[in-house]
Amino acid sequence: MAIIAYTDGSSLGNPGPGGYGTILLETEKKVKKEFSQGFRLTTNNRMELLAVIVALEMLKKPQTEITIYTDSKYVCDSVEKKWVLGWEKKGFKGKKNEDLWRRFLIFYRKHKVSFQWVKGHAGNEFNERADVIAVAAANSKDLKIDTGFEADKSSDSINFAG
């Protein structure tokens, strides 16, 4: 059984309040599940990446085939062009979002993942829906702390909590 995910991130200011939206579709049963969460201070790129991580974390069976549709060139190119693997080999030295990239790689390696870039705000039904729920999460009253981002901003230490 193959899975399709549509992911999006939002930041109201960069940095500012932000949120992610993730939609999972089973291709056989056409089941749809939505996930979102808002954070009080984060960046758009962090939310784009976190949306993908959540999609992968929701997969229960190892080696699940998943195609992730994203409008984030940052995420898509970093994975498809294998930049993230080079960053990992160099210990992520000087790279932003190390905590999330490390978390991503754990789940990425458990599954058969492919990425498809889609143009944002171009009428794709599920991309538009992922955007709506990401923005709603960023605007919600239930904003969590993006500990990886806030710890990085307050000191030079690295915090791997997400």
Rank of each mutant, 00 (worst) to 15 (best):
N127W: 08
D71C: 06
K60A: 10
A137N: 09
T7R: 01
V118Y: 06
K29E: 09
N159H: 03
D71A: 03
E128P: 05
R40D: 02
R46F: 06
T147R: 08
N139R: 14
S78E: 01
A5L: 02
T43D: 07
C76S: 14
I53Y: 05
R102W: 03
A2E: 11
E26T: 14
L105V: 11
P15L: 04
L24C: 05
D156N: 15
G21V: 10
L59D: 09
L50Q: 10
K33L: 15
E48Q: 11
K30I: 02
R103L: 12
S114D: 10
N44P: 10
E65C: 08
R102D: 00
L41G: 04
K144L: 14
D131E: 12
R129E: 14
I3G: 00
V84D: 01
W117R: 07
N97F: 02
H111I: 09
E34W: 07
L50W: 06
D8V: 03
F160Q: 01
L56I: 07
V54T: 15
L49I: 11
F104Y: 12
V52W: 04
F115C: 11
V52N: 09
K61R: 11
V113C: 09
T70G: 04
V79K: 03
D77N: 15
R103M: 08
A151C: 12
M58F: 12
E57W: 01
I106N: 07
D142G: 07
F35H: 10
G9F: 00
L25Y: 01
S11C: 15
Y108F: 15
A5C: 03
T42D: 07
F160K: 00
R46S: 05
D142V: 14
V31K: 12
F104A: 09
N44C: 11
T42Q: 03
K33N: 14
V113P: 06
A2I: 10
V79M: 08
L50K: 11
K33W: 12
V79T: 05
S72V: 07
R40N: 12
G19I: 03
L50A: 09
I145A: 10
P15C: 03
G148P: 03
K95Q: 15
K153E: 10
V52C: 15
F115I: 11
N124D: 15
R40F: 05
A134F: 05
S140W: 12
V132C: 13
I3T: 09
S155V: 10
I133S: 06
K119W: 11
I23P: 02
S155W: 04
S114C: 14
A136N: 15
T27P: 01
G21N: 04
P17G: 01
K144Q: 13
H121K: 11
E34P: 04
T64L: 04
R109W: 06
N139Q: 14
W87D: 01
T7M: 01
G38P: 04
Y20I: 01
V52H: 09
A51G: 15
